[in-house]
Deep mutational scan, measured.
Amino acid sequence: MATGGRRGAAAAPLLVAVAALLLGAAGHLYPGEVCPGMDIRNNLTRLHELENCSVIEGHLQILLMFKTRPEDFRDLSFPKLIMITDYLLLFRVYGLESLKDLFPNLTVIRGSRLFFNYALVIFEMVHLKELGLYNLMNITRGSVRIEKNNELCYLATIDWSRILDSVEDNYIVLNKDDNEECGDICPGTAKGKTNCPATVINGQFVERCWTHSHCQKVCPTICKSHGCTAEGLCCHSECLGNCSQPDDPTKCVACRNFYLDGRCVETCPPPYYHFQDWRCVNFSFCQDLHHKCKNSRRQGCHQYVIHNNKCIPECPSGYTMNSSNLLCTPCLGPCPKVCHLLEGEKTIDSVTSAQELRGCTVINGSLIINIRGGNNLAAELEANLGLIEEISGYLKIRRSYALVSLSFFRKLRLIRGETLEIGNYSFYALDNQNLRQLWDWSKHNLTITQGKLFFHYNPKLCLSEIHKMEEVSGTKGRQERNDIALKTNGDQASCENELLKFSYIRTSFDKI
Protein backbone atom coordinates (compact mmCIF):
# COMPACT_ATOMS: atom_id res chain seq x y z
CA MET A 1 0.00 0.00 0.00
CA ALA A 2 1.32 3.44 -0.90
CA THR A 3 2.05 5.44 2.22
CA GLY A 4 -0.25 8.40 2.54
CA GLY A 5 -2.61 7.11 -0.16
CA ARG A 6 -6.26 6.15 0.17
CA ARG A 7 -7.56 2.78 -0.97
CA GLY A 8 -10.95 1.40 -1.74
CA ALA A 9 -12.83 4.69 -1.64
CA ALA A 10 -15.23 5.35 -4.46
CA ALA A 11 -13.84 7.94 -6.83
CA ALA A 12 -15.18 9.63 -9.89
CA PRO A 13 -13.70 8.28 -13.13
CA LEU A 14 -10.51 10.06 -14.01
CA LEU A 15 -11.17 12.19 -17.08
CA VAL A 16 -8.15 13.27 -19.05
CA ALA A 17 -8.75 16.65 -20.54
CA VAL A 18 -7.28 17.24 -23.60
CA ALA A 19 3.34 27.69 -27.43
CA ALA A 20 6.77 28.16 -26.99
CA LEU A 21 6.36 31.81 -26.03
CA LEU A 22 9.07 32.51 -23.49
CA LEU A 23 8.01 34.96 -20.82
CA GLY A 24 11.48 35.97 -19.76
CA ALA A 25 14.51 34.50 -18.07
CA ALA A 26 14.10 33.63 -14.42
CA GLY A 27 17.50 34.93 -13.34
CA HIS A 28 20.22 33.55 -11.05
CA LEU A 29 18.00 31.39 -8.83
CA TYR A 30 16.89 29.28 -11.80
CA PRO A 31 19.36 27.97 -14.41
CA GLY A 32 17.04 28.29 -17.40
CA GLU A 33 13.95 30.01 -18.69
CA VAL A 34 10.30 30.43 -17.76
CA CYS A 35 8.19 28.47 -20.25
CA PRO A 36 4.42 28.41 -20.72
CA GLY A 37 2.27 25.41 -19.93
CA MET A 38 2.64 22.55 -22.39
CA ASP A 39 0.46 19.76 -23.73
CA ILE A 40 2.79 17.21 -25.32
CA ARG A 41 1.07 14.29 -27.02
CA ASN A 42 1.31 11.63 -29.75
CA ASN A 43 5.10 11.78 -30.19
CA LEU A 44 8.28 13.05 -28.55
CA THR A 45 8.91 15.95 -30.92
CA ARG A 46 7.62 18.73 -28.66
CA LEU A 47 9.27 17.25 -25.57
CA HIS A 48 12.50 18.93 -26.65
CA GLU A 49 10.86 22.31 -25.98
CA LEU A 50 11.52 21.59 -22.29
CA GLU A 51 15.27 21.64 -22.82
CA ASN A 52 15.96 25.11 -21.39
CA CYS A 53 12.97 25.39 -19.05
CA SER A 54 13.53 25.90 -15.34
CA VAL A 55 9.93 26.82 -14.60
CA ILE A 56 6.77 25.69 -16.38
CA GLU A 57 4.38 28.57 -15.79
CA GLY A 58 1.23 26.51 -16.18
CA HIS A 59 0.71 22.77 -16.42
CA LEU A 60 2.74 20.01 -18.05
CA GLN A 61 0.78 17.21 -19.70
CA ILE A 62 2.55 14.34 -21.46
CA LEU A 63 0.11 11.85 -22.92
CA LEU A 64 -1.09 9.47 -25.62
CA MET A 65 2.21 8.20 -26.99
CA PHE A 66 1.56 4.65 -28.15
CA LYS A 67 4.57 4.04 -30.40
CA THR A 68 7.37 5.11 -28.07
CA ARG A 69 9.81 2.53 -26.70
CA PRO A 70 12.15 2.51 -23.67
CA GLU A 71 15.17 3.30 -25.84
CA ASP A 72 13.46 6.48 -27.06
CA PHE A 73 13.74 7.93 -23.55
CA ARG A 74 17.28 6.86 -22.66
CA ASP A 75 18.98 10.02 -23.89
CA LEU A 76 16.21 12.38 -22.82
CA SER A 77 16.82 14.46 -19.72
CA PHE A 78 15.69 17.90 -18.61
CA PRO A 79 17.80 18.68 -15.54
CA LYS A 80 17.03 22.41 -15.62
CA LEU A 81 13.36 21.91 -14.77
CA ILE A 82 12.87 22.91 -11.13
CA MET A 83 9.23 23.91 -10.76
CA ILE A 84 5.79 23.50 -12.35
CA THR A 85 3.34 26.15 -11.20
CA ASP A 86 0.13 24.18 -11.93
CA TYR A 87 0.14 20.38 -12.26
CA LEU A 88 2.00 17.45 -13.83
CA LEU A 89 -0.02 14.81 -15.68
CA LEU A 90 1.20 11.66 -17.43
CA PHE A 91 -1.23 9.38 -19.26
CA ARG A 92 -0.53 6.41 -21.53
CA VAL A 93 3.04 7.19 -22.48
CA TYR A 94 4.37 3.82 -23.65
CA GLY A 95 7.98 2.84 -23.05
CA LEU A 96 8.58 5.31 -20.20
CA GLU A 97 9.87 3.30 -17.23
CA SER A 98 11.00 6.03 -14.82
CA LEU A 99 11.04 9.80 -14.41
CA LYS A 100 14.41 9.85 -12.65
CA ASP A 101 16.35 10.81 -15.78
CA LEU A 102 13.59 12.81 -17.44
CA PHE A 103 13.07 15.23 -14.51
CA PRO A 104 15.96 14.65 -12.10
CA ASN A 105 15.71 18.08 -10.43
CA LEU A 106 11.97 18.72 -10.32
CA THR A 107 11.55 20.05 -6.79
CA VAL A 108 8.21 21.86 -6.57
CA ILE A 109 4.73 21.47 -8.06
CA ARG A 110 2.80 24.49 -6.81
CA GLY A 111 -0.72 23.45 -7.82
CA SER A 112 -1.89 26.99 -8.51
CA ARG A 113 -4.41 25.43 -10.90
CA LEU A 114 -5.31 21.80 -10.46
CA PHE A 115 -6.49 18.91 -12.59
CA PHE A 116 -9.70 17.86 -10.82
CA ASN A 117 -8.13 18.73 -7.43
CA TYR A 118 -4.87 16.93 -8.26
CA ALA A 119 -1.40 18.41 -8.71
CA LEU A 120 0.28 15.13 -9.71
CA VAL A 121 -1.54 12.60 -11.88
CA ILE A 122 0.03 9.33 -13.07
CA PHE A 123 -2.67 7.35 -14.89
CA GLU A 124 -2.46 4.19 -17.01
CA MET A 125 1.29 4.43 -17.57
CA VAL A 126 1.62 0.82 -18.69
CA HIS A 127 5.43 0.54 -18.57
CA LEU A 128 6.27 2.85 -15.65
CA LYS A 129 8.17 0.89 -12.99
CA GLU A 130 8.98 3.72 -10.56
CA LEU A 131 8.25 7.42 -10.20
CA GLY A 132 11.87 8.35 -9.59
CA LEU A 133 11.18 12.03 -8.80
CA TYR A 134 13.85 11.90 -6.14
CA ASN A 135 14.21 15.67 -5.81
CA LEU A 136 10.48 16.35 -5.46
CA MET A 137 10.16 18.04 -2.08
CA ASN A 138 6.94 20.01 -2.16
CA ILE A 139 3.47 19.89 -3.68
CA THR A 140 2.14 23.18 -2.40
CA ARG A 141 -1.54 22.69 -3.20
CA GLY A 142 -3.62 19.77 -4.40
CA SER A 143 -3.35 16.02 -4.03
CA VAL A 144 -1.77 13.04 -5.78
CA ARG A 145 -3.56 10.55 -8.01
CA ILE A 146 -1.67 7.45 -9.11
CA GLU A 147 -3.95 4.85 -10.68
CA LYS A 148 -3.95 1.83 -13.00
CA ASN A 149 -0.19 1.58 -13.51
CA ASN A 150 0.32 -2.17 -13.72
CA GLU A 151 4.13 -2.13 -13.45
CA LEU A 152 4.54 0.69 -10.93
CA CYS A 153 6.43 -0.03 -7.71
CA TYR A 154 8.25 2.09 -5.11
CA LEU A 155 5.03 3.64 -3.86
CA ALA A 156 4.99 2.22 -0.33
CA THR A 157 8.48 3.64 0.21
CA ILE A 158 7.42 7.25 -0.40
CA ASP A 159 6.32 9.33 2.58
CA TRP A 160 3.90 11.73 0.91
CA SER A 161 3.35 13.58 4.18
CA ARG A 162 6.84 15.02 3.72
CA ILE A 163 5.79 16.46 0.35
CA LEU A 164 2.17 17.54 0.89
CA ASP A 165 0.51 19.31 3.82
CA SER A 166 -2.28 16.73 3.77
CA VAL A 167 -2.40 13.22 2.33
CA GLU A 168 -6.07 12.52 3.05
CA ASP A 169 -7.20 13.18 -0.51
CA ASN A 170 -4.45 11.23 -2.24
CA TYR A 171 -5.83 8.46 -4.43
CA ILE A 172 -3.26 5.74 -5.09
CA VAL A 173 -4.89 2.52 -6.31
CA LEU A 174 -4.69 -0.34 -8.82
CA ASN A 175 -0.93 -0.29 -9.25
CA LYS A 176 1.47 -3.24 -9.14
CA ASP A 177 2.35 -2.15 -5.63
CA ASP A 178 -1.18 -3.16 -4.57
CA ASN A 179 -0.48 -6.83 -5.22
CA GLU A 180 2.60 -6.88 -2.95
CA GLU A 181 4.67 -8.14 -5.87
CA CYS A 182 7.23 -5.35 -5.88
CA GLY A 183 9.83 -6.23 -3.28
CA ASP A 184 11.10 -2.64 -3.20
CA ILE A 185 14.72 -2.41 -2.13
CA CYS A 186 16.09 0.94 -0.98
CA PRO A 187 19.78 1.86 -1.41
CA GLY A 188 22.05 -0.25 0.81
CA THR A 189 19.38 -2.74 1.84
CA ALA A 190 20.80 -5.52 -0.33
CA LYS A 191 24.10 -5.17 1.55
CA GLY A 192 22.45 -5.08 4.95
CA LYS A 193 22.92 -1.34 5.34
CA THR A 194 20.39 1.38 6.10
CA ASN A 195 21.25 4.33 3.90
CA CYS A 196 17.86 6.01 3.64
CA PRO A 197 15.92 7.82 6.37
CA ALA A 198 13.00 5.98 7.91
CA THR A 199 9.70 7.49 9.05
CA VAL A 200 6.60 6.17 10.75
CA ILE A 201 3.18 6.38 9.12
CA ASN A 202 0.19 4.25 10.08
CA GLY A 203 2.37 2.49 12.63
CA GLN A 204 4.91 1.37 10.03
CA PHE A 205 8.57 2.29 10.38
CA VAL A 206 9.78 2.20 6.79
CA GLU A 207 12.85 3.33 4.88
CA ARG A 208 11.98 6.04 2.41
CA CYS A 209 13.26 5.91 -1.16
CA TRP A 210 12.19 6.65 -4.73
CA THR A 211 14.25 3.95 -6.46
CA HIS A 212 16.82 1.31 -5.61
CA SER A 213 19.50 4.01 -5.95
CA HIS A 214 17.75 7.17 -4.68
CA CYS A 215 16.63 7.83 -1.12
CA GLN A 216 13.80 10.19 -0.31
CA LYS A 217 15.21 13.33 1.24
CA VAL A 218 13.70 13.90 4.68
CA CYS A 219 14.47 17.19 6.43
CA PRO A 220 14.19 17.88 10.16
CA THR A 221 10.60 18.67 11.14
CA ILE A 222 11.62 22.14 12.29
CA CYS A 223 12.52 23.03 8.69
CA LYS A 224 8.86 22.63 7.63
CA SER A 225 8.41 23.05 3.86
CA HIS A 226 11.44 25.30 3.49
CA GLY A 227 13.77 22.36 2.93
CA CYS A 228 17.30 21.74 4.11
CA THR A 229 20.84 21.34 2.90
CA ALA A 230 22.52 18.00 2.34
CA GLU A 231 23.84 18.32 5.90
CA GLY A 232 20.31 18.76 7.30
CA LEU A 233 20.55 22.50 8.01
CA CYS A 234 17.30 24.38 7.47
CA CYS A 235 16.89 26.65 4.48
CA HIS A 236 15.80 30.28 4.79
CA SER A 237 12.12 30.79 5.66
CA GLU A 238 11.49 32.17 2.15
CA CYS A 239 12.80 29.00 0.50
CA LEU A 240 10.58 26.20 -0.69
CA GLY A 241 11.71 22.61 -0.97
CA ASN A 242 15.48 22.88 -0.98
CA CYS A 243 18.54 25.12 -0.94
CA SER A 244 22.29 24.97 -1.43
CA GLN A 245 23.16 26.98 1.71
CA PRO A 246 21.24 27.47 4.96
CA ASP A 247 19.43 30.66 5.94
CA ASP A 248 20.17 32.49 2.68
CA PRO A 249 17.25 33.68 0.48
CA THR A 250 19.55 33.81 -2.56
CA LYS A 251 20.45 30.10 -2.29
CA CYS A 252 16.94 28.65 -2.47
CA VAL A 253 16.05 26.14 -5.15
CA ALA A 254 12.53 27.63 -5.28
CA CYS A 255 10.66 30.36 -3.43
CA ARG A 256 7.90 29.95 -0.88
CA ASN A 257 6.35 33.29 -1.85
CA PHE A 258 7.90 35.38 -4.63
CA TYR A 259 11.05 35.48 -6.70
CA LEU A 260 12.77 38.79 -7.47
CA ASP A 261 16.18 39.37 -9.01
CA GLY A 262 17.89 36.24 -7.74
CA ARG A 263 16.38 36.11 -4.27
CA CYS A 264 13.21 34.96 -2.56
CA VAL A 265 11.03 37.65 -0.96
CA GLU A 266 7.86 37.63 1.13
CA THR A 267 6.10 40.16 -1.10
CA CYS A 268 6.94 42.21 -4.17
CA PRO A 269 8.11 45.72 -3.21
CA PRO A 270 7.22 48.78 -5.31
CA PRO A 271 7.55 49.22 -8.24
CA TYR A 272 7.03 45.47 -8.75
CA TYR A 273 3.82 43.46 -9.02
CA HIS A 274 2.87 39.90 -8.10
CA PHE A 275 2.56 37.66 -11.14
CA GLN A 276 1.18 34.10 -11.31
CA ASP A 277 1.54 33.77 -7.52
CA TRP A 278 5.28 33.15 -7.65
CA ARG A 279 7.34 35.98 -9.14
CA CYS A 280 7.66 39.76 -9.25
CA VAL A 281 7.43 41.70 -12.51
CA ASN A 282 7.64 45.39 -13.37
CA PHE A 283 5.06 47.55 -15.12
CA SER A 284 6.74 47.18 -18.51
CA PHE A 285 6.45 43.39 -18.33
CA CYS A 286 2.73 43.56 -17.57
CA GLN A 287 2.22 46.22 -20.23
CA ASP A 288 3.99 44.10 -22.86
CA LEU A 289 1.74 41.15 -22.04
CA HIS A 290 -1.29 43.41 -22.37
CA HIS A 291 -0.26 44.67 -25.80
CA LYS A 292 0.76 41.22 -27.08
CA CYS A 293 -2.74 39.95 -26.48
CA LYS A 294 -4.63 43.10 -27.41
CA ASN A 295 -5.02 42.03 -31.02
CA SER A 296 -4.39 38.33 -30.54
CA ARG A 297 -7.03 35.67 -31.06
CA ARG A 298 -4.96 32.92 -29.46
CA GLN A 299 -6.84 31.01 -26.81
CA GLY A 300 -5.52 31.72 -23.34
CA CYS A 301 -4.04 35.07 -24.32
CA HIS A 302 -5.11 37.76 -21.84
CA GLN A 303 -4.83 41.53 -21.82
CA TYR A 304 -3.17 41.72 -18.42
CA VAL A 305 -4.10 44.52 -16.02
CA ILE A 306 -2.94 45.72 -12.60
CA HIS A 307 -5.04 45.35 -9.46
CA ASN A 308 -4.08 45.25 -5.77
CA ASN A 309 -0.36 45.13 -6.60
CA LYS A 310 -0.87 42.19 -8.94
CA CYS A 311 -0.52 41.76 -12.70
CA ILE A 312 -3.62 39.68 -13.47
CA PRO A 313 -5.45 38.48 -16.64
CA GLU A 314 -8.51 40.72 -16.19
CA CYS A 315 -10.16 43.10 -13.77
CA PRO A 316 -12.37 41.53 -11.09
CA SER A 317 -16.13 41.99 -11.07
CA GLY A 318 -17.12 45.60 -10.43
CA TYR A 319 -13.92 47.05 -11.92
CA THR A 320 -12.87 48.28 -15.32
CA MET A 321 -9.43 49.00 -16.78
CA ASN A 322 -8.02 52.50 -17.05
CA SER A 323 -6.36 52.34 -20.47
CA SER A 324 -3.71 54.93 -19.58
CA ASN A 325 -2.12 52.94 -16.74
CA LEU A 326 -3.76 49.46 -16.89
CA LEU A 327 -5.12 49.95 -13.37
CA CYS A 328 -8.48 48.43 -12.47
CA THR A 329 -10.82 51.16 -11.20
CA PRO A 330 -14.34 50.81 -9.76
CA CYS A 331 -17.10 51.07 -12.36
CA LEU A 332 -19.56 53.94 -12.28
CA GLY A 333 -22.72 52.02 -12.97
CA PRO A 334 -22.64 48.77 -14.99
CA CYS A 335 -19.12 47.69 -15.88
CA PRO A 336 -17.99 47.49 -19.49
CA LYS A 337 -17.09 43.97 -20.54
CA VAL A 338 -14.84 43.32 -23.53
CA CYS A 339 -15.45 39.94 -25.13
CA HIS A 340 -12.67 38.60 -27.36
CA LEU A 341 -13.85 36.21 -30.05
CA LEU A 342 -11.33 33.38 -30.39
CA GLU A 343 -11.49 33.03 -34.17
CA GLY A 344 -12.21 36.69 -34.82
CA GLU A 345 -15.92 36.11 -35.38
CA LYS A 346 -18.90 34.42 -33.80
CA THR A 347 -22.10 33.12 -35.36
CA ILE A 348 -25.28 33.58 -33.35
CA ASP A 349 -27.59 30.83 -34.60
CA SER A 350 -29.56 30.11 -31.43
CA VAL A 351 -30.48 31.51 -28.06
CA THR A 352 -27.78 29.30 -26.55
CA SER A 353 -25.03 30.87 -28.64
CA ALA A 354 -26.38 34.34 -27.82
CA GLN A 355 -26.17 33.53 -24.10
CA GLU A 356 -22.41 33.14 -24.43
CA LEU A 357 -22.19 36.91 -25.02
CA ARG A 358 -24.47 37.89 -22.16
CA GLY A 359 -23.15 41.01 -20.44
CA CYS A 360 -20.68 41.91 -23.21
CA THR A 361 -20.48 45.61 -23.98
CA VAL A 362 -17.61 45.52 -26.48
CA ILE A 363 -17.15 42.76 -29.06
CA ASN A 364 -13.54 42.38 -30.15
CA GLY A 365 -14.30 40.68 -33.46
CA SER A 366 -17.25 40.31 -35.82
CA LEU A 367 -20.80 39.04 -35.30
CA ILE A 368 -22.83 36.96 -37.72
CA ILE A 369 -26.54 36.67 -36.93
CA ASN A 370 -28.12 33.61 -38.55
CA ILE A 371 -31.28 32.80 -36.59
CA ARG A 372 -34.17 30.98 -38.23
CA GLY A 373 -36.47 30.46 -35.27
CA GLY A 374 -36.92 30.26 -31.52
CA ASN A 375 -39.37 30.90 -28.71
CA ASN A 376 -39.69 34.43 -27.33
CA LEU A 377 -36.80 35.30 -29.62
CA ALA A 378 -36.81 39.10 -29.47
CA ALA A 379 -36.77 39.14 -25.67
CA GLU A 380 -34.04 36.49 -25.49
CA LEU A 381 -31.82 38.30 -27.97
CA GLU A 382 -32.23 41.61 -26.17
CA ALA A 383 -31.45 39.99 -22.82
CA ASN A 384 -28.21 38.53 -24.16
CA LEU A 385 -27.06 41.01 -26.83
CA GLY A 386 -28.77 44.17 -25.67
CA LEU A 387 -25.76 45.57 -23.78
CA ILE A 388 -23.39 45.47 -26.76
CA GLU A 389 -22.28 49.01 -27.52
CA GLU A 390 -19.39 48.43 -29.90
CA ILE A 391 -18.26 45.87 -32.48
CA SER A 392 -14.66 46.12 -33.64
CA GLY A 393 -15.21 44.16 -36.86
CA TYR A 394 -18.37 43.83 -38.94
CA LEU A 395 -22.01 42.92 -38.30
CA LYS A 396 -23.59 40.43 -40.68
CA ILE A 397 -27.31 39.55 -40.70
CA ARG A 398 -27.80 36.50 -42.91
CA ARG A 399 -30.86 34.34 -43.57
CA SER A 400 -32.37 35.24 -40.22
CA TYR A 401 -35.96 34.52 -41.12
CA ALA A 402 -37.15 34.99 -37.55
CA LEU A 403 -36.02 38.62 -37.33
CA VAL A 404 -38.41 41.49 -37.92
CA SER A 405 -36.14 44.19 -36.46
CA LEU A 406 -32.63 44.72 -35.11
CA SER A 407 -33.91 46.69 -32.14
CA PHE A 408 -32.63 43.95 -29.80
CA PHE A 409 -29.20 45.58 -30.34
CA ARG A 410 -30.63 48.41 -28.27
CA LYS A 411 -27.29 49.89 -27.17
CA LEU A 412 -25.21 49.34 -30.31
CA ARG A 413 -23.61 52.69 -31.12
CA LEU A 414 -20.40 51.89 -32.98
CA ILE A 415 -19.22 49.46 -35.65
CA ARG A 416 -15.52 50.08 -36.25
CA GLY A 417 -15.04 47.93 -39.33
CA GLU A 418 -11.46 47.01 -38.43
CA THR A 419 -12.24 43.69 -40.13
CA LEU A 420 -14.52 43.78 -43.19
CA GLU A 421 -16.74 41.12 -44.74
CA ILE A 422 -15.37 40.21 -48.20
CA GLY A 423 -12.84 42.98 -47.62
CA ASN A 424 -15.43 45.73 -48.10
CA TYR A 425 -18.44 45.64 -45.82
CA SER A 426 -18.87 46.53 -42.16
CA PHE A 427 -22.65 45.95 -42.23
CA TYR A 428 -23.99 43.11 -44.37
CA ALA A 429 -27.66 42.09 -44.68
CA LEU A 430 -28.49 39.19 -46.99
CA ASP A 431 -31.69 37.20 -47.51
CA ASN A 432 -33.69 38.16 -44.44
CA GLN A 433 -37.24 37.40 -45.55
CA ASN A 434 -39.10 39.10 -42.69
CA LEU A 435 -36.79 41.97 -41.72
CA ARG A 436 -38.91 45.13 -41.80
CA GLN A 437 -37.00 47.57 -39.62
CA LEU A 438 -33.38 48.14 -38.67
CA TRP A 439 -33.73 50.52 -35.73
CA ASP A 440 -36.04 53.34 -34.71
CA TRP A 441 -33.84 56.04 -36.19
CA SER A 442 -35.62 58.78 -34.24
CA LYS A 443 -34.13 57.31 -31.05
CA HIS A 444 -31.08 55.34 -32.16
CA ASN A 445 -27.66 56.63 -33.21
CA LEU A 446 -25.15 54.36 -34.94
CA THR A 447 -21.71 55.25 -36.27
CA ILE A 448 -19.82 53.04 -38.73
CA THR A 449 -16.19 54.14 -38.77
CA GLN A 450 -15.11 52.40 -41.95
CA GLY A 451 -16.45 49.99 -44.51
CA LYS A 452 -19.60 49.95 -46.64
CA LEU A 453 -23.18 48.73 -46.35
CA PHE A 454 -24.52 45.71 -48.23
CA PHE A 455 -28.25 44.97 -48.63
CA HIS A 456 -29.58 42.24 -50.93
CA TYR A 457 -32.71 40.07 -50.87
CA ASN A 458 -34.49 41.66 -47.93
CA PRO A 459 -37.97 41.77 -49.51
CA LYS A 460 -39.80 43.50 -46.65
CA LEU A 461 -37.11 46.08 -45.85
CA CYS A 462 -37.86 49.32 -47.59
CA LEU A 463 -35.13 51.29 -49.33
CA SER A 464 -36.11 54.35 -47.28
CA GLU A 465 -35.08 52.48 -44.13
CA ILE A 466 -31.71 51.65 -45.70
CA HIS A 467 -31.13 55.23 -46.88
CA LYS A 468 -31.92 56.48 -43.39
CA MET A 469 -29.21 54.18 -42.05
CA GLU A 470 -26.74 55.64 -44.56
CA GLU A 471 -27.43 59.13 -43.23
CA VAL A 472 -27.34 58.27 -39.53
CA SER A 473 -24.29 55.98 -39.67
CA GLY A 474 -22.14 58.31 -41.76
CA THR A 475 -21.79 55.88 -44.64
CA LYS A 476 -23.68 57.90 -47.25
CA GLY A 477 -21.57 58.15 -50.38
CA ARG A 478 -19.42 55.11 -49.58
CA GLN A 479 -21.67 52.57 -51.28
CA GLU A 480 -21.30 51.67 -54.93
CA ARG A 481 -24.19 51.01 -57.26
CA ASN A 482 -24.54 47.29 -56.63
CA ASP A 483 -24.06 47.35 -52.85
CA ILE A 484 -27.72 48.15 -52.21
CA ALA A 485 -30.02 46.23 -54.54
CA LEU A 486 -32.93 48.32 -55.79
CA LYS A 487 -35.06 45.38 -56.91
CA THR A 488 -34.65 42.84 -54.08
CA ASN A 489 -35.05 45.10 -51.06
CA GLY A 490 -38.60 46.09 -50.12
CA ASP A 491 -40.10 44.48 -53.21
CA GLN A 492 -42.75 42.72 -51.09
CA ALA A 493 -43.58 45.64 -48.81
CA SER A 494 -45.73 48.75 -49.02
CA CYS A 495 -42.92 51.26 -49.09
CA GLU A 496 -44.34 54.25 -51.01
CA ASN A 497 -47.00 56.39 -49.38
CA GLU A 498 -48.86 58.93 -51.51
CA LEU A 499 -51.64 61.30 -50.49
CA LEU A 500 -54.73 60.67 -52.57
CA LYS A 501 -57.04 63.69 -53.13
CA PHE A 502 -60.72 63.10 -53.82
CA SER A 503 -63.36 65.48 -55.11
CA TYR A 504 -67.00 64.56 -55.20
CA ILE A 505 -70.29 65.79 -56.63
CA ARG A 506 -73.30 65.77 -54.39
CA THR A 507 -76.52 64.72 -56.02
CA SER A 508 -80.10 64.46 -54.87
CA PHE A 509 -83.39 63.43 -56.43
CA ASP A 510 -84.09 66.97 -57.54
CA LYS A 511 -80.54 68.31 -58.07
CA ILE A 512 -77.52 67.38 -60.13
Score class of each variant (00 low, 15 high):
Cys301Tyr: 09
Leu152Trp: 01
Asn150Ser: 10
Leu128Lys: 00
Ile82His: 07
Arg141Pro: 01
Pro271Tyr: 14
Leu63Val: 14
Asn43Leu: 04
Leu44Phe: 11
Gly58Arg: 00
Ile185Ser: 04
Met321Pro: 13
Gly183Tyr: 14
Arg145Ala: 11
Gly95Pro: 01
Lys292Trp: 08
Tyr273Pro: 02
Cys209Tyr: 02
Asn43Lys: 09
Cys301Arg: 08
Ser323Glu: 13
Thr45Cys: 03
Lys294Asn: 03
Tyr171Cys: 02
Asn195Trp: 12
Cys186Ala: 12
Val144Phe: 02
Ser54Lys: 02
Arg162His: 09
Asn242Glu: 09
Trp160Glu: 01
His290Arg: 03
Gly227Phe: 12
Val121Cys: 07
Ser98Val: 01
Leu90Val: 07
Val34Phe: 15
Thr157Met: 05
His307Gly: 03
Cys268Trp: 00
Leu164Gln: 04
Gly142Arg: 01
His28Val: 08
Val305Gln: 05
Val55Asn: 02
Ile139Trp: 00
Tyr30Ile: 01
Asn138Glu: 02
Met38Lys: 12
Cys243Gln: 01
His28Asn: 07
Trp210Arg: 08
Leu81Thr: 03
Gly300Asn: 07
Arg41Thr: 15
Asp86Leu: 00
Glu231Pro: 14
Thr157Glu: 14
Tyr87Gly: 01
Thr157Ile: 11
Asp277Gln: 09
Thr189Asp: 10
Tyr171Gly: 13
Asp159Gly: 09
Cys182Gln: 12
Cys301Phe: 08
Lys67Cys: 07
Trp160Pro: 01
Tyr273Met: 14
Ile82Leu: 07
Ile201Gly: 14
Gln299Met: 05
Ile109Val: 11
Val265Trp: 09
Asn295Ala: 05
Arg46Glu: 10
Thr189Ser: 11
Phe103Thr: 01
Ser284Lys: 01
Ser296Asn: 14
Pro246Tyr: 06
Asn42Trp: 09
Glu180Pro: 13
Leu332Cys: 07
Val55Thr: 04
Ile163Lys: 02
Cys264Thr: 00
Cys331Gly: 14
Glu49Ser: 15
Leu136Asp: 01
Leu44Glu: 12
Ile82Phe: 12
Gly262Gln: 06
Thr189Phe: 11
Leu240Val: 07
Leu47Trp: 03
Pro31Val: 06
Cys328Ile: 02
Phe115Ala: 14
Asn170Lys: 05
Phe205Val: 14
Asp288Met: 13
Trp278Leu: 06
Val206Ile: 05
Arg46Pro: 07
Gly183Glu: 13
Glu180Gln: 14
Tyr259Ser: 05
Ser77Arg: 09
Ile56Gln: 00
Ala230Trp: 10
Gly232Leu: 12
Gly300Ser: 08
His226Ile: 08
Ala198Lys: 12
Phe275Met: 05
Ser161Leu: 09
Glu49Lys: 11
Ile306Trp: 06
Glu33Thr: 07
Asn52Arg: 11
Cys53Gly: 00
Pro70Asn: 03
Val206Ala: 04
Cys293Pro: 02
Asn309Cys: 04
Gly300Leu: 07
Thr45Gln: 05
Glu147Arg: 02
Phe73Lys: 04
Gly132Glu: 00
Gln204Pro: 15
Glu238Ala: 10
Pro79Cys: 03
Cys268Pro: 00
Arg297Lys: 12
Tyr87Leu: 00
Gln216Cys: 08
Cys228Leu: 03
Tyr30Cys: 05
Leu99Asn: 00
Met65Trp: 01
Cys196Pro: 13
Pro197Lys: 10
Ser161Gln: 15
Gly227Ala: 06
Lys191Tyr: 12
Ala198Val: 07
Gly318Arg: 04
Pro104Ser: 01
Phe103Ser: 00
Thr229Asn: 15
Lys129Leu: 04
Ile82Asp: 03
Pro31Leu: 11
Met125Gly: 05
Cys328Tyr: 04
Val265Ser: 05
Ala230Phe: 09
Ile40Gly: 00
Met137Gly: 11
